[in-house]
Amino acid sequence: MDLDVRRLRVLYEVALRGGITAAASSLHVTPSAVSQQLGQLAREAGCELVERSGRGVVLTPAGHVLADHAKQIISAVEQAGAGLAALRRDVSGTVRVGAFPSAAGALVAPAAARAIARHPDLDVRVFEAEDQQSRLDLRSGRLDVIVLQEYDHVPTPLPPDLDRRPIASDPMHLITPAGWGSRSGRLDDLRDARWVASAEGTPCLHSTLHACRLAGFEPDIRHRAVDFALTLDLVGAGLGAALVPEMALRGVPSTVHVEPLTDPVTERRIFAVTRGRGTGPLRPAMEAFLAELTASASAPGPRPA
């Protein structure tokens, strides 16, 4: 039985994304092209790999078995390439990095610039990506490194096939309209205030709610903002108080007063994630970028983890 590795990657993408259309979008091909590759792979394997379910497809039992093996084969090929690159000590090639906006600006961009300056044959490419999407892109091989966040009391579990590397701790700050005057950094002083918070279901909202509840009250949330820049603008307009991580406090309007949160103290942790190495090495190119990313966290701003 001869199985084409490229077609195995297509099958794994379908399994990971949950359908042909999503896999096609990730692979930048048409759904019909994905279907053709799956059909050819089914002929090579001698059994059906997908079947119709409603308006989409699902993997057959044989498809699930082959997708699991495809994941292992893709990983083995990647580790073989990493091993050869490590022997050559070759800091070259492309490293694709996904990160959420505040980390992309404060940590990833300067790390990428330094890595490229230090290693002229290295090409680091930065992509803004929210956490859930970036995890899928990492596991599929579309990204090589992703940067994730984890707030106090809101853990971020990872599947066993991903490796985690701590980068920085990012303390939360209390921001209030400048017209409200100075504050002590204690949340219980603001139990009767209006609040600006993130959207439902986000870790930032859970962190804000938990901190306020630790201080003994339920916040009166009047406004919602996922973008920290909008949060700063809403607070600057006098519409409420908010909790914002230090890394997001760039370009703070003069109408916003900022104080470290002193009671309760809370933070978010920033960490880099790569595909599991097993017993194999990371490519020297990825190690070079991760070294610069750790150095970025040592600069003024977020505290090293």
Rank of each mutant, 00 (worst) to 15 (best):
L11D: 10
L174A: 06
Q133H: 14
D163Q: 09
V97L: 01
A112D: 00
S25C: 00
A42E: 15
V10D: 04
Y12L: 13
Q79T: 05
I167E: 02
H173I: 02
T30G: 14
R17N: 00
L66C: 05
L261V: 01
A23D: 07
G39W: 11
T262G: 08
L290K: 04
D263V: 02
A305G: 15
L84M: 09
W180F: 10
L293D: 09
R194A: 10
L143A: 03
S198Q: 09
R88D: 13
S169M: 06
R6L: 12
G240M: 03
D144E: 14
T294F: 04
A305Y: 10
A215N: 06
T294L: 11
G56D: 11
E259C: 01
Q133E: 14
A193E: 08
V126N: 01
P260M: 10
S254F: 02
T30M: 10
I270Y: 02
S25A: 15
T60A: 10
L66N: 06
R165P: 01
A99P: 09
Q133A: 15
V124W: 08
A80F: 06
T266K: 07
G54S: 04
G19I: 15
Y12P: 00
E44S: 15
A62L: 04
T255E: 07
A295V: 09
L293N: 06
A99I: 09
I270T: 14
C212G: 05
P302T: 09
G63E: 03
E44H: 12
H210F: 03
H69F: 12
D161V: 11
H257F: 14
H257C: 13
V256I: 08
R222T: 13
A23F: 06
F271A: 08
L190R: 02
P264G: 11
R268K: 12
L249F: 04
A103K: 05
V124Y: 01
H173Q: 11
E128V: 09
V226S: 10
E200R: 13
L11K: 10
R183E: 08
A104I: 01
R17L: 06
V108Q: 03
G98P: 08
E292G: 08
Y151K: 00
A168S: 07
V226I: 11
G93P: 08
G19P: 05
R89A: 14
D152V: 06
